[in-house]
Amino acid sequence: MSAPLLEVTNLTKHFPIKGSMGRTVGAVKAVDGVSFTLEKGTTLGLVGESGCGKSTTGKVLMRLLDPTSGSIKLDGEDITGLKGKQLDGFRRRVQMVFQNPASSLNPRQSIGAAIASPLVEQRIKVPGGIKAKVADLMDRVGLRPEHANRFPHEFSGGQRQRIGIARALALDPDVVICDEPVSALDVSVQAQVVNLLKDIQADTGVSYIFIAHDLAVVKHMADDVAVMYLGKIMEQANKRELFENPRHPYTRALLSAVPSVDLDAALTERIRLGGDLPSPSNPPSGCVFRTRCPAYELLDEAGKQRCSTEVPAGAMACHFPNAPLAATVGA
């Protein structure tokens, strides 16, 4: 079997904390040992709450930040150590779509120029010319090609996100990292963009890393989902498996916290997490989730001991998946 399109192994990103006199006194463990693979034409959803490290993971994958350790392989080739110009080839194949389309577009640049900019920067010869390519891209994302000379402020939020997507597609990348691409948009417009991303994938076979905090959106976009907490992946599974049969206590709590529009949903389990997120510079020993885990308090002493000393690993990072949860109503 050939290597996966993107293979990430034990990726970490620690930000040093500087004390007085510039000494390093600790580190914010933003990403702490994340591993996953992405196959061609599929979407991996990275979900989690603020501070879980999902956006930092995206930035490290894009090589906007240098990883502290671990490896990133694209088509089997290790790109972790590449620097500067060496990254050009990689940048051609991996592109990014940002959360806030307004701030990622230059207000003084026409949108046609913005979409063409990756082609110009990478000095790519386009058969038929850049103009035609831009027109084609705009058409593909549902913008009118005759608007290429307009400026970003003349477009609505949803349209600006389409511009961002067109720009990301200009180099025909293999992977697009989407960092909260729809969370700034209204629901009715958000659905347009979600559908657009899916249509593009069906047409071109592009793969997505889809970073979002909204579980319902991820459910619609992703094939596989990784749930992150405090820099680590808690549970990683096929979408159907994860949403229909969540096993990790954190995943279960997260899913039960999403307000349901189903008025007769009183029978689903209701788990409430107490307390606050621990500091990523001083995470709990063993399982990082144990301090807020609704299963932990019901464990016996030996179980608690295990959770506070052993770090759970793997796609199901829990020592006791499916354990009964506290504060559960009607489960």
């Binding site: 349209q159 958000q190 659905a191 959106v217 459910k219 899913l255 349901s260 529009v261 189903d262």
Partner: peptide
């Protein structure tokens, strides 16, 4: 146009325009 956790719709139905 709202994505749901329940159910198995793969495609959302957006409202056109803005």
């Amino acid at each position: 146009s709202m994505p749901h956790l329940a159910g198995d719709t793969d495609r959302l139905t957006p409202i056109p325009g803005s």
